[in-house]
Write a protein that binds this DNA or RNA. Structure first.
Ligand SMILES: [Mn+2]
Ligand SMILES: [Mn+2]
Ligand SMILES: [Zn+2]
Ligand SMILES: [Zn+2]
Lengths: 125, 125
DNA sequence: ATTTTATTGCGAATATGTTGCAATAATACG
DNA sequence: CGTATTATTGCAACATATTCGCAATAAAAT
């Protein structure tokens, strides 16, 4: 149950921390300096998710992308569910600072939101 | 390029038209009276999507779900991007009549939205 | 009837993600 | 330190979803 510090964890966390984009397992594997097994990368990422260090986005391509959970500038306000943007041109996914707002019919209880907008980002337009 | 009418198309369209839920390929295959090959089901569904008869939702499970494109009660208004709800209890996905509203940073152009809320639906709570 | 070609079925390929298991190594504790 | 505990890793195998090539079939046009 108790977490241990390992080179794998550290390398993956460093990579995600320094990235402006959400990364998939294979992007992480490619960008890493050290070699880490695929299964290990997934296990590390899933543990980060359990610990709320990282959140997972599932895009329209059906793949999982992972991004660091950042707090808002206003530390009193927890960073809520937000939109993600997938650029079809540069094929990247990023977290938008845009909260997801919705209302649901009576009796519906929402536990999570996975919202991805697709299009062309500023850099590519 | 020209579309032809086939028993497969008709059966799948009937099924989707009569369903309150978005359906995955394997759900469609199970619920069909006639037997249709897996690859064919996907091809029919993808053609429906191209023709804007059906829309595709990708859920957190990474699977594709398909639902008929319905117009609003108000025929003047095209049915926009809307939220979808995935119930973890009855494991279904439905279209909510809740439009997706957002703003994006300057220079971003949105072409599509894939938004799925997850939780427990009214029937199951 | 004949032609054209969209559609289908089949099998194989691709891709993503998970799991069992034995080996390794981080941590706790004497 | 030295040892014990067990979280973590690598590897291979597995599971599942979706696509693709290709030859056969059948809708639609002539
Ligand atoms: Mn995010
Ligand atoms: Mn829908
Ligand atoms: Zn871009
Ligand atoms: Zn339900």
């Amino acid at each position: 149950m108790n977490r241990r510090n390992t080179p794998s964890k550290e390398a993956i966390l460093d990579l995600l921390s320094g990235s402006k984009k959400a990364l998939s397992q294979d992007a992480i594997e490619r960008q890493l300096d050290i070699e880490i097994n695929r299964a290990t990368i997934y296990r590390v990422l899933n543990r980060f998710c359990e610990d709320d260090i990282v959140h997972k986005i599932v895009a329209e391509d059906g793949k999982q992308y992972f991004a660091i959970c950042k707090k808002c500038d206003d530390p009193s306000e927890v960073f809520q569910h937000h939109f993600h943007f997938r650029c079809l041109s540069c094929d990247t996914i990023e977290c938008l600072q845009v909260p997801v707002e919705y209302s649901v019919p009576n009796g519906y209880e929402v536990q999570n939101a996975n919202c991805v907008l697709t299009g062309v980002c500023d850099d590519c337009s």
